[in-house]
């Protein structure tokens, strides 16, 4: 794993699609690792290598959205739309940017375009439902969120926002029902408490728990202290000329 903050390596720069793909994959890795700046640089390289690849622009926007740089994200999303006006993921992330600004109507327009392309995408439908709730259009929110539950009856976010939407309507019976379901499927935040003692007593397990960590080889019982399981023969040992 690349240590956090280390410079992005210089891959051989060719115009082959494989190079663009490698940069893109690398960016996704960094994004998942939480290195938003590194991910942004990698994805910008993708846009440089292949400006007509709309996903590159969208991915820069994803990194910037996570960082809270909404202006910068929107710039990238506009470029993505210029390249491909129909890419559903562009509309989805554009909607998130608009939503974070409280521009709910515009966000809904983009989300509906995404939903038209992927009608069974519950992430998109959840966002539509949430925005309708925020607009206090509780009945429409319920209708949208019920669609999510037809895709995944255990969708946590849908149950949560259904609870709130029914609460908004004053339908306490259904609100309580959704609350029960939400609490049933929700992770128990206090459950991690039981890891405390295990983490203290088992440093190696605690090490695995850290977001960035190194694995230290543990000598096997029959090995001398400080030596590892493996030894490497020299060329001479193997009679390699």
């Amino acid at each position: 794993m690349r240590p956090a903050g280390a410079p992005v390596p210089e891959f051989a720069e060719t115009q082959e699609p494989l190079t663009r793909e490698r940069w893109n994959d690398y960016g996704i890795g960094l994004l998942r690792q939480g290195d938003l700046k590194g991910a942004e640089r990698a994805f910008l390289k993708v846009t440089e290598l292949e400006p007509d690849y709309a996903d590159g622009w969208v991915n820069v926007a994803r990194a910037r959205l996570q960082e809270g740089n909404i202006d910068g994200a929107e710039d990238m999303l506009k470029k993505a739309l210029e390249v491909d006006a129909n890419l559903a993921k562009t509309h989805y992330f554009y909607a998130l940017a608009l939503k974070s600004r409280g521009k709910y109507d515009e966000a809904l327009e983009h989300l509906r375009k995404t939903a038209a392309a992927y009608p069974r995408d519950r992430v998109v439908r959840n966002q539509i439902g949430r925005i309708l709730f925020l607009k206090k259009d509780y009945e429409s929110a319920i209708s949208e969120l019920e669609k999510v539950l037809k895709i995944d009856p255990e969708d946590l976010q849908a149950h949560y926002n259904l609870m709130l939407s029914y609460r908004g309507l004053g339908d306490m019976e259904n609100a309580r029902k959704e609350q029960t379901l939400y609490l049933r499927f929700k992770a128990d935040e206090s459950a991690q408490t039981i890891t405390g003692e295990v983490r203290r007593e088992n440093p190696e397990a605690n090490n695995e728990r850290q977001p960035i960590h190194e694995h230290v080889s543990v000598p096997l019982p029959w090995e001398e202290e400080g030596k590892t399981e493996y030894s490497y023969a020299s060329d001479n040992d193997l009679n390699i000329k």
């Binding site: 405390g196 203290r200 850290q210 977001p211 960035i212």
Partner: peptide, 22 residues
């Protein structure tokens, strides 16, 4: 009952409270 946490994989950092009993 202090727990060892790290941000960079090397140095100890301040823990978040998930693993501590409320």
């Amino acid at each position: 009952n202090d727990i060892w946490c790290t941000l960079d994989g090397v140095h100890k950092s301040y823990c978040t409270p998930e693993s501590y009993q409320g």
